[in-house]
Design a protein around this nucleic acid. Sequence first.
DNA 1: ATGAGGCGTTTAATATATTAGACAATGGGA
DNA 2: TCCCATTGTCTAATATATTAAACGCCTCAT
Lengths: 182, 182
Amino acid sequence: MNIDVGTRLRSIRTAFGISQRELARRAGVTNGLISLIEQNRVSPSVSSLKKVLDGVPMSLAEFFTLDLAAAPQAFFGAEELVELGNEEVSLRLVAAQRPGRQMSVLHERYAPGAATGEEMLAHRGEEAGVVIRGRIELTVSGSTRALGPGEAYYFASQLPHRFRNAGREPCEIISACTPPTF
Amino acid sequence: MNIDVGTRLRSIRTAFGISQRELARRAGVTNGLISLIEQNRVSPSVSSLKKVLDGVPMSLAEFFTLDLAAAPQAFFGAEELVELGNEEVSLRLVAAQRPGRQMSVLHERYAPGAATGEEMLAHRGEEAGVVIRGRIELTVSGSTRALGPGEAYYFASQLPHRFRNAGREPCEIISACTPPTF
DNA sequence: ATGAGGCGTTTAATATATTAGACAATGGGA
DNA sequence: TCCCATTGTCTAATATATTAAACGCCTCAT
C-alpha cells in the first residue's frame, strides 16, 4: 500500500556504488537510519529523506518519479461516436472501444441551461478543449469565465470544475483528456 | 533549506476548496496534523504525507514536481492560442507555455488544397480529432477517407499519416495528441 | 442575543523516527 | 593465520511526529 521508499533508496545508493555509512556521512544522518529506511522499518520524515537524497544528490521529485518498473480503427463517422451523456449534456466519445487508449476525445454538446455538477474526481490528469459553437461558462478552482467559439481551456482534472451553458443556443465543444476518464 | 512542504500542501488544499478537517477525514489523519504540517511545525513522515495526498488525490511525485510559482492559466482567448503552422496549414495550440503539459490540443485550419507531409514520427503516442467545418482527406497507413463535420479520427502517431484538404472551402479540426508533440 | 456548527490553532499524551553505540560477518594485506 | 577495516544490522535512549481534545474565532439561522 505504501510507497516502497526502502528498496528505492537502496537501489539508488547501490547504483551510485556507495555504502550506507558513506551516504550517511554525506547526508549528515546516521548509518543506522539508512539501514532502517532501506528495510522499510521506518517511514522517514520528509526532511530526513531530503537530507539523505542531498547526499546523492537527487531531488525528492526525481526520487518519487523514478519508475522501477491488429490495426485499430482510425476513422469514425459522426454516428460511430459513442454517446456517454444524456439529453442535456451530450458527450460523444471518439474511439471508445479502442483498447489501451491514452486519451479521451469528446464531441460535447450542452443544451441551453445545462450544466455539469461541481466535479472533483478522483482521477489525476488534465483536460482541455476548444469551443466551436455557442458559449460556455466555465468555473475552475473558483474562477469563472465565459468562453465563445475559438476560445479554449486547459486545466488539471482534479481541480473542482463546472461547465454551464448560460446562453440560449446550444454550445458545442471538442475536448480531450488524459489519461482517459471515459 | 528544506522543501516548503507546508505552503505546498496548503495551496493544494485551498485550490481544491476543502478544509483541513475534510482533508484529514479523507486521509485518515487528524486535522491538527494537517495544521502543523501546513505551518511547517513538523516534517511529516513519508507515509503520513502519502496518506494526506491520497485524500486529494495526488501522488508524491506530482506533489514534489508541482510548480508552486503560479496557478497555471486555465482560460484562453482565441488570440492566445499559439500559432505553430503556416499560411496553408494553421495550427493553434492551447496552453502552449504550460510546463509539463501532458497533451497538445490544437485548433487546426487547412486552406483549400493544403496538405501535410507524409509524416512518420519517432514518437510513440496517439492523436485524435473531430472535424468541425469543411472536409479533410485523411490517409493513415495507406487507407484514405474523407471526413466531414462531426466525423472523427484516432490513430497511433507513428503510423504514416497525411492530411489533405481536397475541397474548396477551408477545413477546421480540433485535435489532441499525447504525449505532446508540440 | 444566542446557540450550533464550521474554521484553523494549540497543548499534553503517545507513537514513532532518529541517534549513538555495539554486534556479527566479510574481505583483504602483512 | 591474524588483524584491521568495512560492511549491514540491531537495541536502548532520545528527539520528533502524530493524536485526541480543547481553545478562540467566525458565520448563520433561530
